[in-house]
């Protein structure tokens, strides 16, 4: 029978068994627990693959301990899961290669990220860690927006970029800490270069 000829049947929606929504339990490194819907978890590629691999039933979720996320504190994880719940069901964006990348920060995200830079820093680390593409996009866009209208000197201050001299000093200190002989070798090399030698050996 073709589709066109199939009989039309009224469906009693109430009679259809509604699939029970599943919530997972996660615990931050400071022992704060969160219940997150299965759909919201799909925003995080890492967590999504994790719960799929675990194969928990609803009973397992209730009876077994919460899944520990050791590297993220409760304050940050709360923001992450708030974001995931708000954006649940949305498609994961794909980079279209435009220059510069076009990222709009929705109002909800802007309010969510109205936080101090310390927490924003942790949020980005968490988004990267949990592989939440769109959260990473919007949070990084917020960081990029800090560059607007700034001179190199201002950017150095805002982004805490060390000057070349500071970088050199840090490199020397690291080398010395690792191998006290390294600096002597480097100085010897520089001296030979100054004397016009082509080969160090």
């Amino acid at each position: 029978m073709s589709v066109e000829n199939a009989p039309v049947v009224d469906v009693d929606e109430a009679a259809i068994p509604v699939e029970k929504k599943m919530y997972y339990r996660f615990e931050s490194n400071d022992k704060k627990e969160f219940r997150v819907s299965e759909l919201a978890i799909q925003q995080s590629e890492t967590l999504n693959r994790l719960v799929e691999a675990m194969g928990y039933t609803s009973e397992d979720v209730e009876n077994k301990p919460a899944i520990a996320i050791e590297n993220i504190d409760g304050k940050t994880l709360k923001l992450v899961f708030q974001w995931c719940e708000h954006h649940k069901g949305e498609a994961i964006p794909v980079d279209d290669g435009s220059v510069p990348k076009i990222v709009e920060i929705p109002e909800f995200d802007a309010k969510l990220m109205d936080i101090d830079n310390g927490l924003l820093f942790k949020l980005i680390w968490a988004a990267d860690y949990l592989n939440i593409v769109q959260l990473l996009n919007v949070s990084c866009k917020k960081v990029a927006n800090m560059a607007q209208g700034k001179t190199p000197a201002q950017l150095r201050r805002v982004y805490l970029l060390p000057s070349d001299e500071e970088d050199e000093a840090a490199k020397r200190a690291a080398q010395e800490a690792q191998d006290p002989r390294a600096r002597e070798v480097e100085e010897e090399f520089e001296e030979r270069k100054r004397q016009g030698g082509n080969s160090f050996f």
Binding site: D95, P100, F121, W125, L136, C140, V143, A144
Partner: peptide, 20 residues
Amino acid sequence: KTFPLLRLPFLALLEVFKSL
């Protein structure tokens, strides 16, 4: 009002650069 840009993980740093 400061943010340690170069201490971000590599992919995040790349995302910041892409948005500039």
